[in-house]
Simulated scan of single mutants.
Amino acid sequence: MRMPHLEGIRCEQIHTPRLTFHVLFAGPPDGEPVVFLHGNVSSATFWEETMLTLPPGFRAIAPDLRGYGESERRPVDATRGLRDFSDDVHALVETMGLARFHLVGHSMGGGIAMQYAIDHAERIFSLTLVDPLSPYGFGGTKDPEGTPCWPDYAGSGGGTANPEFVRRLAAGDRGEESDFSPRRVLRAFYGKAPFLHPREDILVESMVRTAVGEENYPGDFQISANWPGIAPGTRGVNNAMSPKYCNLSALAAIDPKPPILWIRGAEDVVVSDHSLFDFGYLGSIGLVPGWPGEAIYPPQPMVAQTRRVLERYEAAGGRYQEEEIPDAGHTPYLERPEVFQEILHAYLRR
């Protein structure tokens, strides 16, 4: 079954040298291109409302990334960090003939956008990061400089995903009987809880189309002697975001330096200095036993890490703008669309 889309959204399969993409479009074909990258366990359909409301003269382009939505399922080599995804995006824009474009990334897509800017800064008019992955990856670091808690980066990678959620995702669970069903996870964590969206059924359908397994989401893992007992493997999405392989701090030194907009929901519990998906924070509040304490494994300061890299970007001659949207969680573009759009549109026009 093909995913239904909002009126005004067009879709196309685009073949590139790396993989076949399912891509959504909105706006005039000759408009200034804005490329949207979605987050983990979602797809381009999350961007549809934002795509349809871009100012006149802009063209919205949103691909399903590898292993998500209706794009081709290919393994993720986690030892390359997010470069598999960045290289995919580059193959897509090259195939489409996009010389330059605005780039917008949410969550994991924000990390991919940073990696793309490191690899191809000259192609970007502007960079917008929406509740982005920390430049030092997800899990296992303890200060604004991204210092690892353990040498093996225990507490990050493929073993950090809840196994019952993974099982239900793989089974295509569209119900709401379990707290670990994709629908209940969407309501509890993707936005400020309870997050109830008019297109909830479509968003859930998008989630359950995620490729699940050791090669994709969440990836493989290794047993560790260090708390909390699991360390990154070498395959799959969550390992690609582990700080063992993912370090995007080189963003501060890219040249040329496109202007950067950083937007985040004030109530985000996913990418946060107190993330409910971070073992350091969960251990500190007693939800994971055996926590070795603040000095060894504190909560990862994800927001502080992003701010530190962007301050370095600014000190090196770049410009960045930080916007916090109150009363919004991890997806402010879906929760408070009018506020989000006002900020994004003003930025794009400038």
Rank of each mutant, 00 (worst) to 15 (best):
K244V: 06
D84L: 06
A161N: 02
T141N: 10
G111T: 06
P299F: 08
Y245D: 03
Q115A: 13
L103F: 00
A193F: 14
R18W: 01
V130Y: 01
G97F: 05
L261M: 12
G105C: 05
G318I: 02
M302V: 01
C11P: 00
S272W: 05
F46D: 09
I14H: 03
V270I: 15
S126F: 00
G283W: 06
H5L: 02
M96I: 11
E164D: 14
E323W: 13
D77P: 06
L133S: 05
T45I: 15
V212E: 00
T306A: 09
G293S: 09
P194C: 05
I223G: 14
L127P: 01
G286F: 07
I296C: 08
T79D: 04
A62Q: 10
A170C: 09
A171V: 10
M114P: 10
L103K: 05
V303E: 11
F277Q: 08
E7P: 09
L348A: 03
V303P: 06
F279T: 14
I202D: 15
L251H: 05
G158T: 03
R83H: 12
L6R: 04
A188T: 13
T20V: 08
E49A: 11
Y297R: 03
F46W: 12
Y153N: 10
R184S: 14
F340L: 12
V130L: 09
N238H: 11
R183N: 06
S126D: 07
S71G: 05
